[in-house]
Design a protein around this nucleic acid. Structure first.
Length: 507
RNA sequence: GGCCCGUUCGUCUAUCGGCUAGGACAUCUCCCUUUCACGGAGGAAAGACGGGUUCGAUUCCCGUACGGGCUACCA
């Protein structure tokens, strides 16, 4: 009875994968996994003009980074191959012909210029964008208005044509959206969408329906921006495969820009200084670069977690979820109807939480790479892990580790001696020199160092508080970082001595 | 303009007719911390408006307003 759950994400390879796209993938993925179903990735490359060659690989890389791998796709293979629409061209033509024969679609020979003329001619104040609809089609050049002989003549003469759906004049088209409930449209208000383009490629409208059927998709999720064209798809299902076989639709709410309103776009990221794409993306045509969440220092777990919460919650106060937990808890009933403004501050909070709860061994290699890119070469060893563990509470992004731990590897370039100079005196110089001299009898670890430091302070009758800040500044260069004695322990006796002696010279 | 969708703190949201409207981010105050964080405690902060339905509406219905999406041989 119940069909196996099969869902699909169908991006067009025209550019980088942004937030909204990844969230659509996520909801698809969670739904599929929760119901023991399959997640299919289908490449909708039917637009030759907007096609960007590198975009397809980029999409796969993004999904891999996010841990949302498809079960079937152009590179994973599967029983319904090919998964690239450009490779299925012939299939769509056959269905388009079927629709024409049944009188549910027709050939249209209008040139782009003629279409433009039509729009100009019928444009009025009340109707600024005239549609190719049930009225207008009677006045255009198509197989509805032309004689059969003329149509045949044009066809055999190789005239350029498209196939358009013939919208019923007076029909109520309704369906139940899993998120929005009943949605109704009137057929007269929907235009005769092109199904097959002049180059023989299908438009999205024909391709989704045909492929969703052929690939046995049970539930179809997409962004809310598709809602207005749903009636076209409903009709196509009715004509071609039967409404009873149609997948259940779910139109997901949009992700909005943080300021003002409107769909979030990559421009907003540039403008407001936060990533919009999952990973770095360089447009091969314009060489324009956009930074991704990955390169900004996000953990994929945090990115996915944050996205999941942008439009869904499990009804409790819990906000931190791992992938497995999301699969277990996810339900479409709890996906919101309204769009959500993207909040980069909250996104960073998610990342901070994930950095805190994740063992550093899981991401130390990423940090090492980041260090390298900034000219700091360190070994990914036990010491590194100790250091990262010590500073991770202070790091919101993976890229924060650099500033927070650089001083463990190299002496600070500049030491903020000014902030301790005022209260400096010879007693303190003497204190530090004697402390250094006494190390021979001290075991080199944080606790022992702290004990010896405090003991000497008492002996010298100097308040410990007067000495802590100087020690910190001499060691790390400024007022930040983890416990000073932990730092000493990790940078070692020799280095600690060097830094102290160097700094004292300037005091 | 038309069609469709939406509307709880600044932001993300809980509430499935009975609440002093809860949580989180951000913000402010305090505590902890001999640095900066982490952490802890607390404060300020919301139901677009107008009608119904009901003993009772944030919750259900209808209008209005506002916001958004779509309106291509793009997806």
């Amino acid at each position: 009875m119940n069909k196996k759950v099969r869902v699909r994400f169908a991006p067009s390879p025209t550019g980088g994968l942004h937030l909204g796209g990844v969230r659509t993938v996520l909801y698809n993925y969670l739904f599929a996994k929760k119901h023991g179903g399959d997640f299919i990735l289908r490449i909708e490359d039917t637009d030759q003009n907007r096609y960007v060659a590198s975009a397809e690989q980029y999409i796969f890389d993004c999904l891999q980074w996010c841990g949302l791998e498809p079960d079937e796709s152009a590179i994973h293979g599967g029983p319904f191959a090919p998964y690239r629409q450009s490779e299925r061209k012939a299939i769509y033509q056959q269905y388009a012909e079927q629709l024409v024969k049944a009188g549910q679609a027709y050939y249209a020979f209008d040139t782009p210029e003629e279409l433009e003329d039509m729009r100009q001619q019928f444009k009025t104040h009340d109707n600024p964008t005239p549609q190719y609809n049930y009225e207008i089609r009677e006045r255009m050049k198509n197989s509805l208005t032309l004689s059969e002989e003329e149509v045949q003549r044009l066809l055999s003469a190789g005239s350029s044509y498209v196939v358009r759906i013939k919208m019923p004049v007076n029909e109520e088209i309704r369906f139940t959206d899993m998120i929005r409930g009943e949605v109704a449209f009137h057929s007269a208000l929907v235009d005769d969408k092109v199904l097959l383009k002049a180059d023989g490629m299908p438009t999205y409208h024909l391709a989704v329906v045909v492929d969703d059927h052929l690939m046995q998709i049970s539930h179809a999720f997409r962004g809310e921006e598709w809602l207005p064209s749903a009636p076209v798809h409903i009709l196509l299902w009715k004509y071609l495969f039967g409404l009873e076989n149609m997948p259940q639709w779910a139109h997901l709410p949009l992700i909005l820009k943080p300021d003002g309103n409107g769909k979030l776009s990559k421009r907003d990221g540039d403008r407001l200084g936060f990533p919009v794409f999952a990973m770095d993306w360089t447009d091969p045509k314009t060489a324009e670069k956009a930074t991704g969440f990955r390169e900004r220092g996000f953990l994929p777990e945090a990115f996915v977690n944050m996205l999941a919460m942008l439009g869904w919650n499990d009804g409790t106060d819990q906000e931190i979820f791992g992938k497995e937990e999301l699969i277990e808890r996810f339900s479409l009933e709890r996906v919101h109807k309204s769009g959500a403004k993207f909040d980069y501050e909250k996104a960073k909070w998610f990342n901070h939480e994930w950095i805190k709860k994740t063992s550093v061994s899981r991401f130390s290699s990423l940090v090492v790479k980041d260090f390298e890119s900034r000219g700091l070469n360190v070994a990914n060893d036990q010491r590194l892990e100790k250091i990262l563990e010590l500073v991770k509470d202070r790091c919101t992004l993976l890229t924060d580790f650099y500033d927070q731990s650089k001083f463990f590897f190299v002496a600070p370039e500049s030491v903020d001696v000014d902030s301790i100079k005022g209260k400096w005196n010879d007693d303190k110089t003497t204190f530090f020199k004697e402390w250094i001299a006494g190390w021979n009898n001290v075991e080199w670890n944080a606790a022992a160092l702290e004990a010896s430091f405090k003991e000497l302070a008492v002996t010298k009758n100097i308040k410990v508080g007067e000495l802590m800040l100087p020690l910190r500044i001499m060691l790390v260069g400024g007022k930040f970082g983890p416990g000073v004695f932990n730092i000493s322990e990790l940078i070692g006796k020799e280095e600690t001595e060097n830094r102290l002696k160097t700094a004292i010279q300037f005091l």
